Simulated scan of single mutants.
Amino acid sequence: MASSITRPLRSINVTKEAVGLVCCRTFSAAKGKKGAKGGAASDAPKVSSLSKEVKSSTTVGANILKDGTDPKVMADSEYPDWLWGLIDKKPALSELRRKDTESLPFEDLKRFVKLDNRARIKENNSNRAKN
């Protein structure tokens, strides 16, 4: 149906200026700023007002409370042990499929079942979409 509409339009010659007028998006000037055009002054990077000592001793931007303060950085020994395990890389599904499922630790076995189910669901969805 779309091809029947576009065939007669192919014979019409349209200049670049006409396309520019139709497809051009314009913006109005900002109110209250007379003579300000472009904004070259605001393109400069902002200088941080925090000192190096404050940046190294606090987690800047971690505060989510309106009246709260940013949390202080503590020594590594003051954090729980499980926290350091969060940054460890987890094995991918292909690696887990190569290993024997009987010898996998419980956490890896749970991860294998979850990733395998997810992969089967994606495959079933793509097969249904093709039909």
Rank of each mutant, 00 (worst) to 15 (best):
E102R: 11
N63V: 02
P45G: 03
A18Y: 04
K52V: 05
F106T: 11
G20S: 09
L21Y: 12
I64N: 14
W82D: 11
S56D: 13
P45M: 00
W84P: 09
T6G: 03
S126I: 09
V14K: 07
M74T: 15
G20K: 12
D67E: 13
C24T: 15
A75F: 05
E53S: 15
I121G: 00
W82F: 03
T101R: 10
K66L: 14
N124L: 08
D116V: 00
E123H: 01
S48K: 09
P80D: 01
S28Q: 14
I12M: 09
P8K: 03
K33N: 12
K31V: 00
K66T: 10
K99P: 14
A129V: 09
F106C: 08
D108K: 03
A29T: 15
L115D: 08
A18C: 11
S4F: 00
A119V: 03
G61V: 04
E95D: 15
I121L: 05
T69E: 14
I64M: 15
E107Q: 13
F106Y: 11
G61W: 06
C24E: 15
K46R: 15
W82Y: 13
I121A: 05
A44V: 14
P45C: 09
G85V: 02
E17W: 06
K37D: 06
W82E: 14
S42N: 15
K90W: 00
V19P: 04
L104E: 05
S94Q: 12
N131Y: 00
E107F: 00
S28E: 15
K122L: 07
S48D: 14
L9I: 06
V19L: 10
S77D: 15
A119C: 05
E123D: 14
N131L: 02
C23I: 06
K55Y: 05
K110N: 10
G68M: 01
P45N: 02
K33E: 14
V19S: 10
K90Q: 08
